[in-house]
Design a protein around this nucleic acid. Structure first.
Lengths: 185, 185
DNA sequence: GTCTATAATTTGATAGAC
DNA sequence: GTCTATCAAATTATAGAC
C-alpha cells in the first residue's frame, strides 16, 4: 500500500514528517534520499530546488487539510459540531516531540523562507479563517465568540508551547476554552 | 552608548535580532561577525559552540523579560493593570516581518535544537506562566478566565500568524480578547 | 528515473601568530 | 582578543552515463 505510492509522493511524505518535526532548514535532500532509499540527485529530479519541495509540501498539506474541512461541511453536524471537528483536525496534527501543524513551524520560519512557500502558508491560514467565518456565521448569538483568526492563532501557538513543555496541557486547555466560549450561549 | 558595550554583548544583540527574524538555523557565525565587524573566529572566542550562543541568548532574553515583569510587580498597578502590562511586553516583541518573541521562534524549532537551549525556552514559558498564576490569583471572581498557559500560547501563536499574514490583526485581536475576558467580571 | 561524480558554497569549528 | 589560515563536513545543485 505504501509501496505502491509514487517516489514523488514518498519523498513528500518523508519531507512532511521531517519538516513538521524539526523545521524546513533542518531537513536536507540527503535526509529525504536516505528515507526513501535513493540518492539525493534523484530527489532533485523530482524537486529541482528546495523551494519547489517546500511549495509542493504546503500545497499537498493544504489540499489534504481542506478536503477534511469539506468533509465536515457535508456531514452537516451543525456549527458547533463543525467547530469541534475543526479543532480535532488540529489536535490530530500535534504529536508532542514529533510533529506540529506544517504551517505552524513554517510560519515561525516565514521570514527566512522563499516567497513562494510563504504565499502557501498565508493561503492556508486565509482558507482556514474563511472556513471558520462561515461556521461562525451559522452560530446563533455571536456575542463573545472568538474571531476565526484568534482561533487559528491560539491553536497554532498552543502546539508550539506544548512541544516545548513536552505536554499537551497547553493545547488541551486551548481547545477546551474555544469550545466553552462557543457553547455557553 | 552602543559603542561602549562589550563585544560579547554586541554579538548577543546581533544574534538576538537575527534569530528573532529568521530562526536559529538560519543564522551563522559569519553573519554575526560581519554585523559587529570582526572575523568569525572571534565570535567563536566568545561562544565556542553555537549551542553556547543559543543558550546565552535565551538566558539574556529571559533575564531581561523577567526584569520587566519584576518592574510591573513593584509598580502595583493591580492585577488587571499587570495583565495589561504583560501583554504590552509581548506586543513590543512583535514587529511584523522583523521580529517575534525569541522563544516563539526557538520554540517552533525546539525539536531540532540542542538540549540546553530547549531547557532555557521551557524555563521561559514556565516562569511566565508562574508569574501569570500569581496575577491570576489576585483577580476577584476567577471564573471564565483564561489559564496562564492559554494566555502565553495565544500570544505566541498570534505573533507567528501575524508574521505570516503581514498584519497585526491576529495579535491585536488576541490581546483584546484576553483583556476582555478578564475585565468583564 | 536513478545513478556516479563533482562543483560551488556555506558552515561550525580549531590552531597558532600577534 | 582578534587575526590569518585552514579544515572537515554538510548542503544545494548540476552534468552526464546508464
Amino acid at each position: 500500500m505504501t509501496d505502491t505510492s509514487s517516489m514523488r509522493e514518498r519523498i513528500l511524505s518523508s519531507a512532511e514528517k521531517r519538516v513538521r518535526a524539526v523545521g524546513f532548514h533542518a531537513v536536507s535532500f540527503r535526509d529525504l534520499a536516505n528515507d526513501v532509499g535513493v540518492k539525493s540527485s534523484s530527489v532533485h529530479y523530482h524537486f529541482p530546488k528546495k523551494e519547489d519541495l517546500g511549495e509542493q509540501l504546503v500545497k499537498r498539506y493544504s489540499e489534504r487539510f481542506h478536503a477534511r474541512l469539506d468533509q465536515i461541511d457535508v456531514e452537516e453536524v451543525g456549527p458547533i459540531g463543525a467547530l469541534e471537528a475543526f479543532i480535532a483536525l488540529y489536535a490530530e496534527a500535534l504529536v508532542v516531540g514529533e510533529s506540529v501543524c506544517l504551517c505552524a513551524i513554517l510560519g515561525a520560519e516565514a521570514n527566512s523562507l522563499p516567497g513562494r512557500i510563504n504565499a502557501g502558508i498565508q493561503a492556508f491560514f486565509q482558507a482556514n479563517t474563511e472556513w471558520l467565518t462561515e461556521i461562525h456565521r451559522r452560530i446563533p448569538s455571536s456575542t463573545m465568540l472568538m474571531t476565526p483568526i484568534e482561533i487559528v492563532s491560539a491553536l497554532e501557538g498552543a502546539m508550539i508551547v506544548s512541544t516545548v513543555m513536552k505536554s499537551r496541557e497547553a493545547f488541551d486547555a486551548t481547545a477546551q476554552r474555544i469550545m466553552a466560549n462557543h457553547k455557553e450561549h
